[in-house]
């Protein structure tokens, strides 16, 4: 698919979503993806604000086993798919992955995407000696790749295995997503898109609309509404990290 077509499709989806803002099928049932329309953009000169906290709600009931469209979309968007020809599969970066779960006692299965959980209290930020791991005021956890010394302590500390180390020289990077050999990286919640008022690539590409993105601090946002209405869990809730990504159905 050419870049133009891609753009048009995304614009179309974006506009469609804007039109459908707040659409409900029945009282209390919000249509995911369609309802989360308004991601307000942030002018470049304006700093990220703690008035917002970006988050995601993943519905594992909708997430299909074997489908990895979110993974493909993330890799294409951020340029980490097929970018490390020399690295072994264990060494290649994976910002998002599909995880298959089977309960040992009951046998119940689940499928869901795992990525950086954008914790309120991120262990990666705690341990980073140089402040390269950081949390933006709006809750997005990032690595400043100009400041990362490649010590990998954040990878030791992250309980979600969300981070990847770049084992080789990279070429043909995406202009909006600089990356580099010897540094650590992870899901940025598509910060470049969010700042432009667009949703993360994985959210947009999920055919089941299983991922809802929005401002957790805005009580009127679809994600905040859904979180008050439905049971949801944080992965490793016991650690008290308060991730910005929550899951339904597990």
């Amino acid at each position: 698919m050419s870049e133009d077509t891609n753009l048009k499709r995304r614009e179309f989806i974006g506009n469609g979503a804007k039109l459908a803002a707040g659409l409900t099928i029945a009282p209390g049932v919000v249509v995911y993806g369609l309802s989360e329309a308004s991601v307000p953009d942030r002018p470049a000169e304006e700093p990220a604000s703690s008035e917002r906290r970006w988050g995601m709600l993943v519905d594992s009931n909708k997430c299909a086993t074997g489908c990895d469209k979110c993974v493909t979309a993330c890799g294409e968007e951020n340029g980490w798919d097929d970018s490390e020809p020399n690295s072994s599969p264990e060494q290649k970066a994976q910002w998002i992955r599909k995880v298959e779960l089977r309960h040992k006692g009951t046998g119940k299965s689940h499928s869901l995407p795992m990525m950086c959980q954008h914790c309120e209290n991120p262990p990666c930020v705690d341990v980073c000696p140089t402040n390269a791991s950081m949390k933006r005021a709006d809750g997005i956890v990032l690595v400043d790749r100009h400041r990362c010394i490649g010590c990998r302590y954040c990878m030791m500390a992250c309980p979600y295995k969300a981070r990847s180390f770049i084992h080789e020289t990279l070429t043909d990077q995406e202009p909006h997503m600089p990356r580099g050999k010897g540094t650590v990286e992870s899901c940025t919640m598509c910060v470049h898109r969010v700042d432009e008022g667009r949703e993360p690539a994985c959210v947009e590409e999920c055919p089941e609309q299983a991922i809802l993105f929005g401002d957790l601090n805005d009580p009127d946002s679809a994600i905040a509404q859904a979180l008050t209405r439905y049971d949801s869990t944080a992965v490793r809730e016991d650690l008290g990290l308060n991730p910005g990504v929550r899951y339904r159905g597990i």
């Binding site: 599969p89 040992k104 795992m114 309980p159």
Partner: peptide
């Protein structure tokens, strides 16, 4: 790492 206690976990990332 025990990301999902009580579950058998598989993924492309060695979970």
């Amino acid at each position: 790492m025990k990301t999902f206690p009580g579950y058998e976990v598989t993924s492309s990332f060695g979970d």
